[in-house]
Nucleic acid binder design. Structure first.
Length: 205
DNA sequence: ACACTGACTATACCGACCAG
DNA sequence: CTGGTCGGTATAGTCAGTGT
């Protein structure tokens, strides 16, 4: 799958004096519709111009939704990747270009907030799933540890490693998905899962 | 020495195609 | 229509090189 990689850092460095309240940057007005058209033809500089103009307000809006500085940065990055990708779908008849951009950022932030909540719930859910499954085994004692043993072994693991194990085994995620989710190389995910499983088996012997 | 990482290999899965 | 085979693709597992 092709992945758009935005270089927003250039836009950041150029945007120091961006004003918050209008479509003006000192002398010239930014025409959002024109900029979106340029985005539709793949122009990253157009995305950069929009970013430079709106970053502060968009970041503030994202922050109000996700309540986390680094997540709000992620929101902005994802949102601008989407703007670049879907600019061709923008229909001026349905509303202003600026409104469209804000809607994308807002939706991205809401989506991220939802994911963050799922993330928090995940580990407990996963553990409960293991425990629930364990009770359906005819004679659990002979083949898998009780839930307390399992929980204490998982508790001993470093959070990211625990997450990789649970995501792989309980959630059925692929190594690729887990690597994307935890922001670590796929080789690392594989090594973590393998090592932790070996270590846990050893503990059970 | 140990952990991380990427490359390589093995395996599973899925869809297309064909014969009965 | 059904079942078998084949090829392509995705994913998991292993291993060796590299860095700390």
């Amino acid at each position: 799958m092709p992945h758009q990689c935005l270089d927003l850092t250039k836009a950041r460095s150029r945007s120091g004096a961006a004003r918050h309240d209008s479509c003006l940057t000192g002398e010239t007005a930014l025409n959002y519709e024109t900029a979106l058209l340029e985005c539709a033809s793949g122009s990253q500089s157009a995305v950069g111009r929009i970013y430079a103009r709106e970053k502060e307000q968009l970041r503030a809006m994202a922050h109000r939704i996700v309540h986390d500085r680094s997540r709000s940065e992620d929101v902005i990055h994802d949102a601008f990747a989407q703007i670049l990708r879907y600019a061709k779908n923008f229909d001026p008849a349905r509303g202003s270009a600026r409104g469209w951009i804000y809607a994308i950022v807002r939706n991205t932030a809401l989506k991220m907030r939802q994911n963050a909540r799922r993330e928090l719930a995940l580990e407990d859910e996963a553990l409960n799933a293991i425990c629930a499954r364990e009770q359906t085994v005819p004679n659990p004692a002979c083949c898998i540890p009780d839930s307390m043993t399992l929980r204490s072994m998982l508790d001993q693991l470093e959070p990211q490693r625990r997450a990789s194990l649970l995501l792989a085994i309980v959630d059925g995620r692929t190594h690729e998905e887990i690597s994307e989710y935890l922001q670590v190389p796929v080789g690392t995910v594989k090594a973590w899962i393998r090592r932790e499983l070996v270590a846990m088996r050893r503990q059970l012997e």
